[in-house]
Design a protein around this nucleic acid. Structure first.
Lengths: 143, 143
DNA sequence: CGATACCCCGGTTGTCTGGTGGGAAACAGA
DNA sequence: TCTGTTTCCCACCAGACAACCGGGGTATCG
């Protein structure tokens, strides 16, 4: 019911990068993958998609890695998912064979619109906030 | 991006049945399938799911068919989709490997909750209303 | 009885998901 | 300039799932 694996992986990697964005340093896929428990060669593909989508910049060679091109509060999850999953490839035909299907498709469109609005109003910075709140709450619990 | 085919098919069939519910008559899969342009043997499976879910009653033999067990305004799309797609089979374990994934999963859960609320507040009667509004609008357009 | 229409279950075909593998290209440091 | 590091690119693969099709079995009306 959740996100597909590539989406979760991509967001988790972006959260790591968002955490160090202010310092200007870069992170390498191998490090992100090991810290998040993600298959390294697979995460590589997500990073490539995110770079092609303009969310990441990459540096090659020793001491290379990735960094965000924009501050975390300027990156919405809608943009992230667009990079990772692409557009749902709307088929150009199918003129809705019956009034019933027209209504059903309209409903599906409405649901998609609501979801998109939610994803557009959530940024990487928001996710970091939530993570830190969780960590603090857990720290409280252990005292 | 829309509903899976079986969901759209099932809803369209239910809309047909909702239209004749007041009269108490039954409709046969063959008729529904041909009116909606749906493969007949495939629609049969959806009807079976809806009957097992308690939304439909079936009559066998000549002059048999299906009818709603409840009035259209008492059937929500959440119930329909539950019958047709089943529960997303939540895996019992996976203690969320990192704080990042906890936040991501929480977000996915929130999106699912919002969607479910929307589906719970939409009934078959609502869809029939929308269909008839569309038909009237189109009739206007042709005059 | 016999035609009708639902009932059950398994197989098929094609696409998508998640992941692996083999190198080639860029780059820092010695 | 050489060497190791890290990204880049493309191909491939196994399993799952979606959308259907088909072969019968079973209740029921006339």
């Amino acid at each position: 019911m959740g996100f597909p694996a590539k989406t979760s992986y991509g967001i988790a990697a972006l959260m790591e990068l968002a955490g160090v964005h202010a310092s200007g340093e870069v992170l390498q896929v191998a490090e992100i993958a090991s810290r998040q428990g993600i298959p390294e060669r697979y995460l590589e593909q997500m990073m490539t998609s995110l770079r092609r989508g303009g969310l990441l910049r990459s540096l090659r060679g020793p001491r290379g890695g990735y960094q965000l091109t924009r501050p975390p509060e300027a990156v919405t999850l809608a943009q992230v998912i667009h990079c990772l999953e692409g557009d749902p490839a709307v088929s150009p035909d199918e003129p809705a064979r019956s009034p019933e299907f027209q209504v059903i498709d309209a409903l599906a469109g409405e649901l998609a619109r609501i979801r998109l609005a939610q994803l557009e109003s959530t940024t990487l910075a928001n996710l970091l906030e939530q993570r830190d709140q969780r960590l603090q709450a857990q720290a409280m619990y252990f005292i």
